[in-house]
Nucleic acid binder design. Structure first.
Lengths: 347, 347
DNA sequence: GTGAAAGCGCTAACAA
DNA sequence: TTGTTAGCGCTTTCAC
């Protein structure tokens, strides 16, 4: 519906015998309009069912009151809670949220930055691990972009980051397995080289080293965060001469793949193989067995990202340090003490 | 980043010694600009890295080139693929997608319709089962709104619908169970009264009746589409004097709940109990056991909804019949022939 | 085929 | 405290 025949600010002004400017001021809580007039205007506006024309306002103020949330893949439930957090915080501040889906396409990434530059959006919550490198931005992006990076990390940009401590959390995860008595613990990482994957890999190594455990040849497999890679690499791991008793997958989806592959091979989880994930996505708790994993405060991350973005947009400045939100270890049914120990005990 | 120091249409006009009007025409493919000029303008625009100011254009044309996609709960992965379809189709047509999350809050629902009315969005893909009834729209919404309803159904509005045949698909689902030899088949419905829940319930009854199977007292349980209700109602069903051998849940999430509850009671799925879902959400295939379910073409629904919306926005009119997209039965591991039969055989 | 001029609805200088 | 005035950047009559 085009805004047809809509009542505008001059209509109110005419009706009340005041100037449009006064109406504008009264309606924007500027505190510049005195009381008799103020109420009259507000009431009239309400009575006449006035609604501002956003395009006109945007054109004049050079703001859009919209923010862009850019993810790699809208189809991935992983981003849902973040979106929810961003949406909630944006709503409260009167901002609309525009969805951006890059599909890892540089063309699109650039396009969303264009929208920023063009004023179609005032700011951006970026949840992809990279800045656009192609096209119009070859010479480099302008400084001080109102962009906040959530969950992912982009080095050397000086952009504010809202994230979790991936390395420490991964270490906690492995520590949990070690605590259960596992010594043969393998890791299925995300794609390398990529910051997040690497941090989680390092966390794995940290914990192993701290416990004095060796990482045998082949115990570090490189996945791609997708289910099938978990399946495939689980097989690769179990085919090793000394297969692991526990697998720490760098995300839940691969962990599900691991569990599926284990079942197909007749291995019980956690009886024969403990499986640990990372992320705590939707339904990880409902999975059979319920997945032991690292729970990320995704909605909080989204909310915090939007809050920082608002601070920037309102000129309150940005934090110069990354904001690190705490993760929690969600111990569920996919991990248990290793069978070797049980066997020793019963032997 | 506010659109600072941006090159505008007059800059190009000045540089080339033509009028802004000509530039505007050249850049909008109006076919009104002759060839020598046309190319010069286009090249200059590209060289100067011109980008139109969207607010100005929107103000002038009274369109926003944005559509609103309104769902009940952004946090629900169910909508993801629809969003993806909508986003893709919107992109191709040069539309931005604004996310709307109602949380079933009438205030918010109304707010999104306001955005339509105010021209913040040109159209809306509505994926909630209701129109706003409260607030400013008490007297009824205007006719001919550029709103398309996807997946859900809203009667009496005359709005175009893109949907699946819930009743027939539910019937197919139950038919599958009957085909396996089940006779004691229970149903866990969605919230009643609600169109979609009722259609799926009717599909269940259709199939049962067609097969001449009775629906014993207590075999129809009312859930709320959420996991816990599936859990709870599975217990209720299995506590019946004659528990079912198969449960058809009205969505996958409840089906997961059913499976979880079954496992907790020591029942094997599908050995002791066959479980059937509806929707085929993310990871249903990876679930243990992989869930037999009805697969909805959600991305296609989203794409089709956006296509219809574009037709409306471009004045090509809307279909007067609902568009029904085909579902498929995804037979996986959570359903099998009932044990009773097996017992009889072995007896 | 192109230019001149007006104006979309709003806000922000500047004046009073 | 309120009014006057100008203009954001674009598109679109209306002339020529």
């Amino acid at each position: 519906m085009a805004p047809t025949g809509r009542v505008k600010i001059t209509d109110i002004a005419d009706k009340l015998g005041v100037s449009p400017a006064t109406v504008s001021r009264a309606l924007s809580d500027s505190g510049l309009v005195a009381e008799p007039t103020l109420s009259r205007i507000r009431e009239a506006a309400a009575a006449m069912n006035y609604r501002p024309n956003v395009s006109a306002r945007n054109l004049r103020t050079r703001r859009s009151k919209a923010v862009l949330m850019v993810v790699r893949d809208v189809g991935n439930p992983f981003y849902l809670d973040v979106l929810k957090g961003v949406e909630a915080a944006a709503r409260e501040a009167g901002y609309a949220v525009l969805m951006g889906n890059t599909e890892n396409d540089p063309e699109r990434e650039t396009g969303f930055f264009d929208m920023l530059r063009d004023g179609q959006a005032d700011g951006m919550v970026l949840i992809t691990g990279q800045m656009p490198q192609a096209g119009r931005y070859k010479e480099g992006l302008p400084d001080n972009l109102p962009v906040v990076v959530a969950l992912e990390m982009i080095d050397g940009t000086g952009l504010p980051h809202i994230q979790i401590d991936n390395r420490a959390a991964a270490s906690d995860a492995v520590q949990h397995l070690i605590g259960l008595g596992h010594t043969r613990i393998a890791h299925i990482s995300g794609p390398l080289p990529e910051q997040m994957s690497e941090l989680r890999l390092r966390g794995y190594r940290d914990a192993m080293e701290r416990a004095g455990l060796p990482i045998p040849e082949g115990y570090e497999q490189r996945g791609d965060y997708r289910l099938v890679s978990g399946k495939r690499l689980c097989c690769a791991l179990m085919d090793l001469p000394q297969p692991p008793t526990a697998i720490f997958a760098a995300n839940d989806e691969m962990a599900f793949g691991v569990i599926a592959a284990a079942h197909e091979r007749g291995l019980a989880v956690p009886g024969d193989l403990s499986v640990m994930g990372f992320d705590d996505i939707y339904l990880s708790e409902a999975f059979q067995p319920p997945l032991t994993t690292i729970s990320q405060p995704r909605a909080d991350v989204g909310r915090a990202a939007m809050t920082v973005l608002l601070d920037i947009l309102d000129g309150r400045g940005a934090p110069d340090q990354p904001i690190i939100l705490p993760t929690t270890l969600a111990v569920r049914g996919s991990t248990a003490a290793p069978q070797i120990l049980n066997q020793r005990r019963s032997a």
